[in-house]
Amino acid sequence: MRAAGVMQFGGPEALQIVDVEPEPLGPGQVRLRVEAAAVSPTDTHARSGAYAGRDPVTTPPWVPGMDVAGVVAEVGDGVEHLAVGDAAMGIVGPFGPYGAYREDKVLPGGSVVRAPANATVVEASTLPMNGLTARLALDHMALQPGQVLAVTGAAGAFGGYVVQLAKADGLTVVADASEADEQLVRDLGADVVVRRGDDVADRIREQFPDGVDGLADGSVQDALVLPAVKDGGAVATVRGYRGDGQRGLRFFPTMVRKVAEDRAALDRLRRQVEDGVLTLRVARTFPAEQAAEAHRMLERGGVRGRIVLTF
């Protein structure tokens, strides 16, 4: 069957249509006929070979992709929350040829739920990885209603979900944005919007002189933005940054693989889409044959919403 993958790690041009074997279906698993796979920065890193040392598969092809949506084609013994024909979405732990960019994908039952009833499969494919990461970041920080959360990269997919989920949790949100993205971030629900940039910590402190209680650093500014957080505050990071040990700040590197089979959390996100709490944003779709161009677009930057490959 067809997949979009690489035979040799490299730039976007390395992506091509490759032939892969179907995955066997076991107990507790679900087979999806894939219609959409969202593209993320993690995928571009995988394509370039950044994670090759962690991959147990040492021979090509390698297929990226962590977000998938489509139609349930088969369910294994013990799966009761889905039925053949259901529109569904899931999160993929990619390795070797088993990423999301393929026509057929087998997932653990805990990693796949019904797609939101008010969303297309393309829209649904944008939710699992970023949505679960945002939820995990907030759960790690465990802020209480009324406390203040700062969000960097608020116009991005992860940051946007953090803003919306934080507001649903009763937090006050201060978020960064470029001038062009300010209205978008306000529409997502941010209470205060400050201009993005290397001095964003100063801008946040101007609004909250005592510092914020927590920070979700979606723009990966690491040490630059830490001055915005009060002593002893919580910081959720998305690239493993663990801070400098100063001021009693508590760091929570947020690794979505830890919750990749948390079906209850993924299904809660589905319900929040249906209830209007979360907004699914698609920037553009490309047929799988144009995966290279999808990666080029993402790497050029400035994408608002997710790029999605279609099968």
Rank of each mutant, 00 (worst) to 15 (best):
T152Q: 08
T152M: 06
T152N: 06
G153L: 08
A155Q: 01
A155D: 00
A155N: 01
A155M: 03
G156L: 01
G156S: 09
G156V: 07
G156M: 04
A157D: 07
A157F: 04
G159Y: 00
G159H: 04
G159C: 09
G160T: 12
G160D: 13
V162N: 02
V162Q: 02
V163E: 00
L165I: 12
L165W: 08
A166C: 04
K167V: 13
K167R: 15
K167E: 10
K167Y: 06
A168L: 13
D169Y: 14
D169M: 14
G170I: 12
G170W: 06
G170M: 02
T172N: 06
T172F: 05
V174Q: 01
A175H: 03
D176N: 13
A177S: 09
S178W: 07
S178D: 09
E179Q: 10
E179N: 07
D181I: 07
D181S: 15
E182P: 03
Q183M: 12
L184G: 03
L184Q: 13
L184W: 09
L184T: 11
L184H: 10
V185A: 03
R186S: 02
R186V: 07
D187L: 08
G189C: 13
G189N: 09
A190P: 09
D191I: 05
D191K: 03
D191V: 04
D191C: 09
V192K: 00
V192E: 09
V193R: 01
V193E: 03
V193H: 06
V194H: 03
R195A: 15
D198L: 12
D199L: 10
V200T: 04
A201Q: 02
R203M: 09
R203D: 15
I204N: 02
I204Q: 01
I204R: 00
R205Q: 08
R205T: 14
E206Q: 14
E206R: 14
Q207C: 12
F208N: 07
D210Q: 12
G211I: 01
G211F: 02
G211K: 00
V212T: 05
D213P: 12
D213R: 11
D213Q: 12
D213F: 08
G214E: 05
G214Y: 01
A216R: 01
D217F: 08
D217V: 04
D217Y: 10
D217N: 04
V220W: 11
V220R: 11
Q221L: 14
Q221G: 15
D222R: 13
D222C: 05
D222W: 09
